[in-house]
Design a protein around this nucleic acid. Structure first.
Lengths: 218, 218
DNA sequence: ACAAATTTTTAGTTTTGTCTAAAATATAAT
DNA sequence: ATTATATTTTAGACAAAACTAAAAATTTGT
């Protein structure tokens, strides 16, 4: 696969929401920042190669083969993101651009050893799951933040209490849906938590933690 | 710079022996495994960009600007080689192909942090010096292996005693000119050394060590 | 010095991935 | 249902980087 082909495959994968949903030409064009006509050309090529199923005017979807390729790219991307954050002191919002380049490096040994070097992480710094070599994900589980163990990495996905005061609290503390959270410590005494969010450490009370839903990969 | 341009710049740099010597079109074509006509085309483009000086039929040489680019690529290549060997358990003869890909990743922060992560190494696993960010090398020094300190990385560059018995010894132990050597330990008692060569550890006597010249970056 | 051999360049194609403009199809609106 | 709008595809062109074949310049051999 060429660099460009890989980028299209990844775009189709993400637009298909990780499943093999039908994706429109325009959607791909927008995501890739190209023209729809270029997308049509590339889709035809990928179709020839058995990567996507394509019927003109109807859209594309990845084949099983195509999905496998997409997953291997996503795996590489996310492992590199972990590397950049854990080993090279990047913050989670700086990693994407660089991982975008690193994901195209071809070497099976490289990625296996990287995985080992990082201690076989299950999630990337944004809390997204890392596919296994065989292309399998750990399923995400939704919990209250207060139930998460020390060391877990999760993503903020919802609130239990949606009253204005609570929402105002979140807003003031720059906690938004989609933000990745790392639980650094749990205080036995009062159930308060030390978490890392948006690259800042902060301490939150049991009360807050038991009203925030997080998605966790275990 | 495109990927292809970077490859040409690196080839011209190496053929110019690290200095800005005049390099022939054919030499570049051979190194890059392309046709001379392709080289001419690319050289013209690089000349437009101020990377090389070019006079038709006469050959090319890097400009100071071109040399700077070449050194930054070499720096990246060699740092990645160190990473692959030290952190990901590659052996020194497996790293080239992968580093060849990694060297093209663009991110200043990436390479600075990688350098730091590796402890600012001065040589790559083949014993070649790593240019500094400013494009400066540590100069290589030639010594007898017996004079090298524990921990030094060097390359085998010559023999003092060139008698058949000594050469036969080297041959039998698969020690050849150009082999990288790492000094693991020095025995006070008899001056014997434990070295790593060709990915194998071995122990050699003071007598042997004082007849082998190595090039060392300090 | 001059012909022969070698090296290098030019001219004209090819492939990959992109683009624009126009045509074809599908979707939405009255 | 028919027109209007939006989406998608086709056709033709272009830039980058490669190639082949032929022409031009340089170097070598006598």
């Amino acid at each position: 696969m060429t660099l460009s082909e890989e980028d299209y495959i990844k775009a189709i994968y993400h637009l298909g929401k990780g499943e093999q949903a039908l994706v429109s030409t325009n959607a791909v064009a927008e995501k890739m920042d190209t023209k729809p006509s270029s997308v049509t050309d590339m889709i035809k090529k990928l179709s020839e190669k058995g990567v996507v199923n394509y019927r003109r005017y109807k859209g594309v979807r990845l084949t099983d083969y195509g999905r496998k390729i997409a997953l291997s790219i996503v795996r590489k991307h996310r492992l590199w993101e972990v590397f950049l954050v854990e080993k090279l002191h990047f913050s989670w919002d700086e990693v994407h651009e660089v991982a975008e380049q690193l994901e195209h490096v071809k070497s099976e040994k490289l990625i296996d050893e990287l995985d080992k070097h990082l201690g076989f992480p299950k999630v990337d710094p944004h809390g997204d799951p890392i596919p296994s070599k065989e292309g399998e994900f750990k399923k995400a589980v939704k919990k209250l933040l207060s139930e998460a163990l020390t060391g877990t990495n999760g993503v903020c996905v919802g609130v239990k209490d949606s009253s204005p005061p609570f929402l105002k609290f979140l807003d003031k503390n720059k906690i938004a849906l989609g933000d990745p959270i790392l639980v650094l410590d749990k205080e036995e005494f009062d159930g308060s938590l030390t978490i890392k969010i948006n690259n800042k450490e902060m301490r939150i009370s049991e009360r807050i933690a038991s009203n925030l839903f997080v998605e966790i990969i275990d």
